[in-house]
Computed example of a mutant assay.
Amino acid sequence: MLGMSVAGLIRYLGGKYGLALFYSAFIAFWLILNITNLLYAVYFMMGRKAYRTSERFEAEIPVRLTDRGKQFSAVTKNISEGGFLFQLEHPAYLPDDESLEFALRSEKYRADVRGRIVYINSSGNHWLYHVQLEPIEDEQNLREYLQLVYDRTHSLPKSMNVWVTAFDDIVNNASMRLEKQRSEMRALPRIQLERFVRFEEGVSGTLVDFNFKFALIRGISEPADHLTLVPRSGIRVLLENTKKPMISPGVVLYAVTNWEELAASRAFQTLLEDWIFEHAQASKPKRARKLPAA
C-alpha cells in the first residue's frame, strides 16, 4: 500500500504545471498524509531492538562500594530495575569478572544489592560506571530498591516540542534505525595519557593509553617482549608484549602482568591522577597572548 500510494502521488502530479498543479494540491495533501501514516505503520510493524528491559530514570543517590579493602563513595546518575550508573571523579579499577556489593542510601530508603560492572565510559572529567544488578532475593531489600527507583518525579518527557513535525519524526526514526550500534563496550577505564616514557631496558616510547590490564605504546625505539617502567620510587609497571596485530601502524599492545598489585596501590593511583591532570592541561588550547598597546 505504501508503494502504491507513492506511485499514485507521482503519477497524479506528473505533467501538471501552473494552475493545474495548484488545484491538485488538495488531493496531493491527502496522498502525502496517507503516505506518512503508512510509514508510521511500517515502523510499528518492524518494531525496534530493545536494549533495556526496564525504564531508566535520572536520579542522584549516594552509593558506597568496597573492593579489596578499598571503599569508594559515589553518586548515581540514573537508575532502573535492572541496574544503575554511578560517577567517579577519578578512574578506579573495579573487577569486571566478579560481582560487587553496593549500598544505596537516600533520606527514605536503604538497599544493599550486588551487581557487575558491564561498561565504563568518560564524560568530561568524570568516569561513568554502568552496573548490571544480580537478582535480589531478599523481599524487603527488593522493596527498598524499587522504592529508590520509582518514588520520585519521573524524568520522562512531559510535553512535545511543537516545532517537531511528522517529517522530523520519520527522519529521526530512520536515522536511529540505520545508526551503527556500539560494537565494543569496555568494562575497564581507558585512560588517555599520551606520555613519553623511558623503560629500564633502555627502550623509550609514548604511552598512549592505559586501562590497568593493558597499555598501548607508540613509537618504541627498539622491539622488546618485556618492559619495566619505574615512574616513581616504589612503583614498578611490568609489561609483556601481547603480539596482537594492531590496526594503527607503529603501536604495540602490552599486557600489565602486575596489574593486581597496581590496582591495590594507593601510590600508583595518585601517580595516575597526576598523569591524567598533566594530560588534561597539555590538551587545553593555548590562549594567544595579547601584545601591549603601543
Rank of each mutant, 00 (worst) to 15 (best):
T53K: 13
Y17D: 11
F22Y: 15
Y40M: 06
I79P: 00
L21N: 04
F84V: 10
E55I: 15
L31R: 03
F22H: 15
R64G: 13
F44E: 09
E60S: 14
R48Y: 13
Y23S: 11
E55A: 15
D67H: 10
F72I: 14
I35G: 05
L65M: 07
S73K: 07
G47T: 05
T36I: 14
G47K: 00
V75E: 09
S80N: 04
L33A: 15
L19D: 14
T76V: 06
L38C: 05
T76E: 01
E60R: 03
G83R: 00
R48W: 13
T76M: 02
K70M: 06
S24V: 08
F44N: 07
V75T: 15
A41C: 03
L39M: 09
A74K: 01
S73N: 14
Q71L: 13
Y23D: 09
L65S: 03
V42E: 05
K49Q: 10
N34V: 11
I35P: 01
S54T: 11
T53I: 13
L19A: 15
I61Q: 01
A25M: 09
M46W: 08
K70H: 11
G18R: 00
R48E: 11
G82Y: 06
R64Y: 12
K77T: 13
K49G: 08
W30V: 09
F44I: 07
V75Q: 07
G18N: 01
V63H: 03
Y51S: 10
L39I: 13
I27H: 15
E55N: 12
L38W: 04
G69Y: 03
G15T: 02
E58C: 04
K16Y: 08
F22P: 05
L21H: 06
I32M: 11
A25P: 02
A25Q: 09
A74M: 01
R56P: 01
Y23P: 06
E58V: 08
F44Q: 09
L85R: 01
E81N: 08
L85T: 08
I79M: 02
V42S: 04
R64L: 12
Y51A: 07
G82H: 06
L65E: 03
Y17Q: 12
V42Q: 03
I79N: 00
A28W: 04
A59P: 00
F22L: 15
N78V: 05
G15V: 02
K70L: 06
F44P: 00
S24N: 06
D67N: 06
G47N: 02
I27V: 13
T66L: 11
N37R: 08
T36E: 11
S54D: 08
F26L: 14
K16I: 12
F22R: 14
V63G: 05
I61W: 01
Y17G: 10
A28S: 14
Y17I: 12
G69P: 00
L39K: 02
G15L: 00
A59T: 03
N34M: 07
L85I: 09
M46K: 05
K16P: 03
F29C: 12
L19G: 08
K70R: 06
P62N: 08
I35T: 07
S24Y: 05
S80F: 07
L38S: 09
A28Q: 02
N34F: 14
E58F: 06
F44C: 07
G47I: 03
S73Y: 15
A28T: 07
S73E: 13
L85D: 03
V42H: 04
W30L: 10
N78E: 04
A41L: 05
T66S: 15
G69N: 02
K16M: 09
I35A: 11
V42D: 05
R64V: 12
R56N: 05
G15M: 00
